[in-house]
Design a protein around this nucleic acid. Structure first.
Length: 377
DNA sequence: AAGCCGGGGTA
DNA sequence: TACCCAGGCTT
């Protein structure tokens, strides 16, 4: 019986077979994704950053929208952080957006408006790690650099039948294996082909081994353990209750910017905070409003509630309409804004659903007004 | 090495 | 509901 090829010690001839099968499969089966229609390094960069820890489906509409607003490096480098965050709103990991803006300014000022064609230089830029630098080098500049990300880790943990795809050691050894496999011709297609194989065939659950072009290289498949390699582990969720105070003066609402460095930095929200173990939600609201704004709550009315899931916990966010005993005089960077103005401010997804509610409520009021006038007039 | 950073898709 | 995703950065 023919000996299975060990992909980590692959010989030149077998490596050629592996590449050929993979690229042939890719040419016939790749999805029609917007960033695959361009060779523009800026567009490829944007797509790679958007796709960090983000599914293709979630990234596509943001990619289209982003390029309309910031079509090139120059346009991005001249944008405000507020506009950049607003465009990114809902995509998560907002540091990515800030890093894009920072790096675009560096490209404009130090690299003649171009993305440098140099791995070590890229690696020093904000938002560039080993993956993104390798992706740009191979996909935008056609240089044979390997990349290691979630799909590739899963594909190779099966090919090699290794169970620890999260350890840095695995990542390093995988890089060395891939260095010998990445071809000088079409390195970007090769890297994308493995990722596409991971997304479409070598899936996390229910891998489609029968249609896999490289199953003859796969140790997990040979042993029949492709469903349980790599091993996954459970996480536990914690729930936080959060109270938010909606304070209005005429048509304007009080909003505040989340502090730099913390979670959701730079995004805007309503005053409020987490409920402590020893207090009710309404006590929490009163305490937070007093702590943040220095005023006591005179009247409060429950408006609505949303549950929002984060990666490691979830929050139950309750919005109250609040009338304070007196309007806060020291705003410390807070702003009074109308609902129309609020649309240009970036909000976290949970809070933006409160904004949706307020808009709906205001429209309903307008509707009643018109209806009333028509009836009486 | 481990924790943090988000939101949406998925079964 | 609990998992995961074209990672980067800090401690």
């Amino acid at each position: 019986m023919k000996e299975r090829v060990d992909i980590s010690q692959i010989r030149r001839k077998d490596a050629a077979v592996f590449r050929k099968r993979l690229l042939h499969w890719y040419a016939r089966n790749k999805r029609d994704l917007p960033w695959r229609k361009t060779k523009d390094s800026y567009r490829i960069w944007i797509s790679e950053v958007m796709l960090q820890q983000t599914t293709v489906k979630a990234a596509v509409p943001y990619y289209e929208k982003w390029l309309k607003i910031f079509p090139d490096i120059k346009a991005l480098s001249r944008a405000t952080e507020k506009k950049v965050l607003k465009t990114w709103q809902g995509l998560g990991f907002y540091q990515r957006a800030r890093s894009l803006l920072l790096a675009s300014k560096i490209f404009s000022e130090k690299f003649n408006g171009q993305i440098p064609d140099n791995y070590d230089r890229l690696l020093r830029l904000p938002g560039f790690g080993a993956y993104t630098a390798g992706a740009l080098m191979s996909m935008a500049f056609q240089k044979p650099y390997p990349v290691v990300e979630a799909n590739i880790k899963r594909v190779f943990s099966r090919l090699l039948c290794k169970e620890e795809p999260k350890s840095p050691d695995f990542k390093e050894s995988l890089k060395n294996v891939l260095k010998r496999l990445v071809p000088k011709r079409r390195p970007g297609d090769f890297n994308q082909a493995i990722m596409e194989l991971g997304a479409l065939v070598c899936r996390k659950r229910h891998p489609g081994c029968l249609m896999c072009p490289v199953k003859c290289f796969c140790l997990a498949y040979e042993r029949g353990v492709q469903e349980v390699v790599p091993f996954s582990q459970k996480k536990n969720y914690e729930t936080f209750s959060v109270a938010a105070g909606i304070i209005r003066q005429g048509k304007r609402y009080l909003i505040q910017k989340r502090p730099d460095g913390g979670p959701l930095a730079g995004l805007w929200e309503f005053p409020g905070g987490k409920r402590l173990d020893n207090e009710t939600l309404e006590e929490c609201l009163e305490r937070e409003i007093l702590e943040e704004l220095g005023v006591r709550v005179k009247k409060k009315r429950f408006l609505m509630q949303v549950v929002h899931y984060y990666t490691r916990f979830k929050i139950r966010l309750s919005a109250f309409q609040v009338v304070p005993e007196k309007m806060p005089d020291k705003l410390f960077g807070r702003r009074w804004v109308t609902l129309r103005q609020m649309r240009s401010y970036p909000f976290p997804s949970g809070s933006s659903r409160i904004v949706d509610y307020l808009e709906k409520e205001e429209n309903a009021l307008k509707g009643n007004h018109r209806g009333h006038r028509e009836k009486t007039g």
